[in-house]
Nucleic acid binder design. Structure first.
Length: 487
RNA sequence: GGCCCGUUGGUCAAUCGGCUAAGACGUCGCCCUUUCACGGCGGAGAGACGAGUUCAACUCUCGUACGGGUCACCA
């Protein structure tokens, strides 16, 4: 049988990495088995609808490299793929269940339900009391005739227990008394999420239901529906949750379900911070799943190839920005020059960097940045010379002091003025100078670089900094440096 | 609170009864060095706890603790 999985997000305008990972695993499950991946938009909640939210879903999937075979935008044989366009579809199914005695009309008002709930004792949680479950036929007719609004509820078994199999968690058994008579059709005639979900999954031929573990305990209700209709129950793959680390007001580190308080948790938030889509996908693929070997870097195709349900873990995992950062750096290091320059260009442009320096910058930056957004900050010194303190010239490890710096700059400046402004030439010149003075390279290089950059840390060394500045600017800064030292 | 699920270093994780318990991130140290990095080498660091089953338990069973999820006319 051909595998069919689906991603069924609600258009809320925000794509959480947890949702994205669910989509990823659904996609991988389908692709690994040569099956189809379907996108279905669950927009039955009119109140929560956000304009443009579906576009964010499309954009996220596209950027992430997760392509769907069927969906609202690409069509398919099982459409429509937007729930609001399928509204007429659900009620007949519910009516069928009512006719067969597997569901019933419930006329209880929200007020009655509310009163029921508030009658519960401290700490107690009670469900629906099944007041309308066995209403006499005449009473039902009378209420219908009187136009009393009603919902349709599922008749859940009262005793015994339900067991089902999940590919990740194994056999799960839930006492039937835990199962509420859940609402299938709301008073406004719209289906509830759970009901629509089952109808849609079945009518769309979904074979593998991949979703978060928060559905683990409500799955028997879904199964009861499948059974009531005589439909085949899909294969279940429940995923462990993704957690976030944060620090509470007492300074204690707390771990809880990933949310906004943990910083950027939206896919596009991460993109904006400079994380590459491939790195994000690679990282979240490994959150809750591990391959059979110890590989860590996976392209999407490699993920499809290696993905295996057996590798999915049961316990929740904490989203670790440090590791994502590392992985992002790995992706940057693996980039071709073209890719690197393309990604860096927006930042170069902001600094007014000319193309002749691209190759040099790539060499300097590639092993040093973990995100492209760091470029501007790393090259800040090119924009203007900082008003630095001369204590910068003192460096313990290099044994550089104010005096050696004065010597170095005094000797280096005239030589550099005569120098052919080329990287190797500058390096050679400075090294020769050090050799002739019988000092370590650092004694010369350190002060020259400090004077040129005005900051202690620069990507790349002394010669590179000089080249990037250009001869005029570089020499101007060196002279300023010398004056500062002599003052 | 009921029910369900989980628990291997700070984090991600391997292990499917043989463990001297992988690997990665992070962290620390050393080397390299023209700063910071990169790179190389090395270190510290783990089975929640208690019983039981077994020749043997991280692995199976039970209990306890802790964590999470769930109990809507939300999705």
């Amino acid at each position: 049988m051909k595998i069919r999985t689906r991603f069924a997000p609600s258009p809320t305008g925000f794509m959480h990495v947890g949702n994205l990972r669910t989509a990823l695993y659904e996609y991988l499950t389908a692709r690994h088995g040569g099956g189809s991946f379907i996108l279905r938009i669950e927009d039955t909640d009119r109140e929560r609808y956000v304009e443009g939210a579906t576009d964010i879903i499309y954009k996220t999937l596209e950027t992430a490299g997760i392509s769907h075979d069927e969906g609202p935008d690409v069509g398919g044989d099982y459409g429509p793929y937007v729930q609001s366009e399928r509204l007429g579809l659900y009620k007949p199914y519910a009516e069928q269940l009512v006719k067969e005695g597997k569901a019933y009309r419930c006329f209880c008002s929200k007020e009655r339900l509310e009163a029921l709930r508030s009658s519960a004792k401290e700490g107690e949680v009670i469900g629906y009391d099944r007041h309308c479950r066995d209403l006499p036929e005449e009473e039902i007719e009378a209420k219908l005739a009187a136009g009393v609004p009603y919902v349709i509820r599922q008749k859940s078994p009262l005793t015994g227990e339900s067991t089902y199999h999940d590919c990740v968690y194994g056999d799960i058994t839930i006492p039937n008394e835990e199962l509420d008579d859940q609402i299938l059709i709301k008073a406004d005639g719209y289906p509830t999420y759970n009901f629509a979900n089952v109808i849609d999954d079945h009518t769309m031929g979904i074979t593998h239901v991949v979703r978060g573990s928060e559905y683990l305990s409500s799955t028997p209700k879904y199964n009861a529906l499948y059974e009531a209709f005589g439909w085949e129950i899909p294969t279940y793959i429940h995923l462990p949750l993704i957690m976030g680390k944060s620090v509470d007001e007492n300074g204690e580190t707390v771990v809880s379900k990933l949310s906004k308080r943990h910083g950027s948790t939206g896919f596009f938030d991460l993109i904006e911070e400079g994380f590459l889509p491939e790195a994000i996908i690679n990282y979240i693929a490994l959150l809750g799943w591990a391959p059979a070997d110890t590989r860590e870097i996976f392209s999407m195709d490699e993920l499809i190839e290696a993905f295996d349900i057996n590798g999915i873990s049961k316990s929740p995992s904490v989203f670790d920005y440090d590791k994502l950062e590392w992985m992002n750096a790995e992706y940057i290091k693996a980039m071709s020059s073209e890719e690197f320059n393309e990604n860096a260009k927006p930042y170069y442009d902001r600094l007014g960097i000319k193309e002749e320096h691209y190759a040099l910058l790539e060499e300097m930056l590639k092993p040093r940045i973990t995100r492209f957004t760091q470029i501007e900050e790393k090259l800040e010194f090119l924009k203007s010379l900082a008003d630095y303190d001369i204590s910068l010239y003192e460096h313990k490890k290099s044994k550089s002091t104010r005096e050696t710096s004065i010597d170095a700059l005094t000797a280096a400046i005239p030589l550099l003025e005569e120098c052919n402004w080329e990287r190797d030439a500058i390096t050679e010149l400075l090294m020769n100078l050090a050799a002739s003075k019988e000092v370590k390279n650092a004694i010369i290089m350190w002060p020259v670089r400090i004077a040129a950059a005005g900051v202690a840390v620069t990507p790349g060394g002394c010669s590179e900094v000089l080249i990037l500045l250009g001869k005029d600017e570089a020499l101007r800064r060196l002279k300023i440096g010398l004056e500062k030292l002599q003052a």
